[in-house]
Every structure is written in C-alpha cells, then in structure tokens.
Amino acid sequence: MKQVRVGLAMGSYEDEILCEVIPMDACHILLGRPWQFDRDMMHRGMSNEYGLRHNGKKIMLSPMSLSVVRSLGRKQTKKTNLTMLASEKEVE
C-alpha cells in the first residue's frame, strides 16, 4: 500500500499526517480513527467538536457554522451558461 505525508491546517491547528493512497473518484482526505487515535482526540458528540493537545496547546476543532457554509457556497457557485450540443453523427 502506498503512503504519503500530507500537510494539514484547520484554523490554528497545523500538522503533518501519514495518509494511505487509495483509488477514488473524488480527491479527499478522510480523517478517521487512526488519526483520532494517534492524536488522542476527545470527541464531543452533541457539538461535533474534537479536542486535542498539539505542540503543548489545547486545540478545539469545531464545525463551520451554517452561515459560513452558505457564504462559501455563494462565492464558489458562479454558474456559466455553457451549453454543449453534438449532432447525431458526432456522437457516433
């Protein structure tokens, strides 16, 4: 199995993690149980926050608020009216 070190930054939390490379249709980093275990994470279920100590600092990772998610969506969804048509011969 191929592995690669990847830099990761979330707010004030910056780290380097070892990721296993697997074939996917999308390009994502999935932070799962190995990452949580290695960082001795504390998960708060009701608020969906993750707490850890990193470089001597206590860090709390919280989900983005709905208003922030919506504003990011508005900024990234500039739709262009691009219509591509092909004739029957071109499709064949």
Rank of each mutant, 00 (worst) to 15 (best):
M24K: 12
F37W: 06
A86S: 14
I59H: 04
R5P: 06
K2D: 12
L30P: 02
S47C: 05
G51W: 04
L61E: 02
K89R: 13
M84L: 12
I22T: 15
F37M: 10
L61M: 10
R53W: 05
E49H: 10
D40W: 01
K79V: 13
L82D: 02
S65M: 09
S65G: 06
D40H: 07
G11F: 09
P63V: 07
G73Y: 05
E88A: 13
E92C: 07
M64V: 01
K57M: 07
D25A: 13
I22Y: 15
V6R: 13
V68W: 00
G51S: 13
W35R: 00
W35G: 02
G11Y: 00
E14P: 04
K2Q: 14
L72E: 08
L66C: 04
G32Q: 03
V21H: 13
E90A: 13
G7H: 15
T83L: 05
K89Q: 12
K89E: 15
M60W: 03
K78M: 01
Q3G: 11
K75D: 00
R33P: 00
G51M: 02
R39P: 05
M46V: 12
G51N: 04
Q76G: 08
R53S: 07
D25K: 09
I22M: 15
M84T: 03
N81K: 00
V6T: 13
D40Y: 04
E90P: 03
T80Y: 02
